[in-house]
């Protein structure tokens, strides 16, 4: 209703609209005659002319139609509603694209992910889930699929993707940085869900459900070997993005409004030490400190700091 614009030249617009309608009618009926003989009560799917932009490549939804049907619909459903024939067997459930809620974003909670975010998910796949890695596709195919994902929710026509959060350069890993990260893990109460040692066993862990009411477990940092990854990436930058922007559609909240950018890096460094089997700078620094994270001393305490009422669980109690 509110996007009706005054028509400047009614004649021309009418003509254009008529031509558009004729074209659409031809296109849709042609398409439905071709490949939806068994669509049943559902209306035939209109592939909206959505696009994606990855570097210098433009993806077109129309070009991904057969790839989507062949490779994605079995889980995500022909209509993007997560009702593919395999979906009942899967835990976690495939993403429902009609909701336009995505876990892996560089953008703030509640906003749409960027094209790169979706593209990177296709390159990476999602560990600890049935979402496969799609590295046999060409870049163009993946870009087309990213555009195709957008046909399922009207949000993609009304809204722009969110702005990617700004990430300052990573400071060096030091034992002080790790100690501060640990203090933040305690103060921000990540442990309530993830557990004092990041093993996914915090006091609230057993009660958690995702936004579709399916039980969900907090990430267990201690599991996995040297290659342990996250759903939304494996680099320090990825971890930074994950807790700052939140994992939408799950209990994992966004902390972008409550953690200062440099403090966030300290938290990243501490989280790496919870991945006890990982060989990395963070665990090396910890090892050279004989495996002990010293208590964090705030060098510039805030004048009116809120009294800390919570008992600190700490990693090394």
């Amino acid at each position: 209703m509110n996007n009706l614009k005054p028509m400047r030249c009614i004649g021309a617009s009418l003509f254009a609209a008529l031509m558009g309608l004729l074209f659409l009618a031809g296109f849709v009926s042609g398409a439905s005659a071709q490949d939806t003989p068994d669509a049943g009560p559902k209306p035939s799917l209109v592939v909206k002319p959505m696009e994606s932009h990855i570097d210098n490549i433009t993806g077109h939804a129309a070009n991904a139609k057969s790839d989507y049907r062949r490779y994605c619909a079995g889980c995500h459903g022909d209509y993007g509603d997560a009702n593919g024939e395999n979906a009942v067997w899967l835990d976690p459930k495939p993403r429902n694209f009609t909701l336009a809620t995505f876990k892996c974003r560089s953008t703030l909670t509640g906003t749409l992910p960027t094209d790169e975010d979706l593209y990177n998910t296709l390159v990476r796949g999602i560990v600890n889930s049935n979402m496969p890695v799609w590295n046999t596709f060409t870049k163009q195919q993946r870009a087309d699929l990213v555009a195709y994902i957008k046909i399922f929710s009207p949000r993609w026509e009304k809204e722009k993707a969110g702005e990617p959060i700004k990430i300052p350069a990573e400071p060096p890993v030091t034992i002080d940085s790790i100690a501060h990260g640990k203090a933040l893990f305690t103060k921000l109460e990540c442990w309530k869900c993830h557990g004092p040692h990041g093993e996914g066993d915090g006091p609230s862990a057993s009660t958690l459900t995702d936004s579709q009411d399916n039980p969900i477990r907090p990430y267990n940092f201690a599991l996995g070997k040297n290659d342990s990854r996250f759903k939304c990436g494996s680099t320090n930058q990825d971890i930074y993005k994950i807790f700052m922007t939140g994992v939408d559609g799950t209990p994992m909240p966004s902390f972008a409004d409550v953690i200062q950018p440099n403090d966030a890096w300290d938290l990243v460094h501490f989280l790496r030490t919870l991945q006890i089997h990982r060989h990395g700078k963070e665990n090396e620094v910890l090892m050279s400190a004989h495996g002990v994270i010293p208590p964090y001393v705030d060098k510039n305490p805030a004048p009116a700091a809120a009294p800390a009422d919570n008992k600190a669980p700490g990693g090394g109690q």
Binding site: L188, D248, T250, D257, V258, A305
Partner: peptide
């Protein structure tokens, strides 16, 4: 639109 935000004690 769904969002999910942490609000520690003393935050605005």
């Amino acid at each position: 639109i769904e969002w999910n935000k942490s609000q520690p004690p003393g935050s605005p």
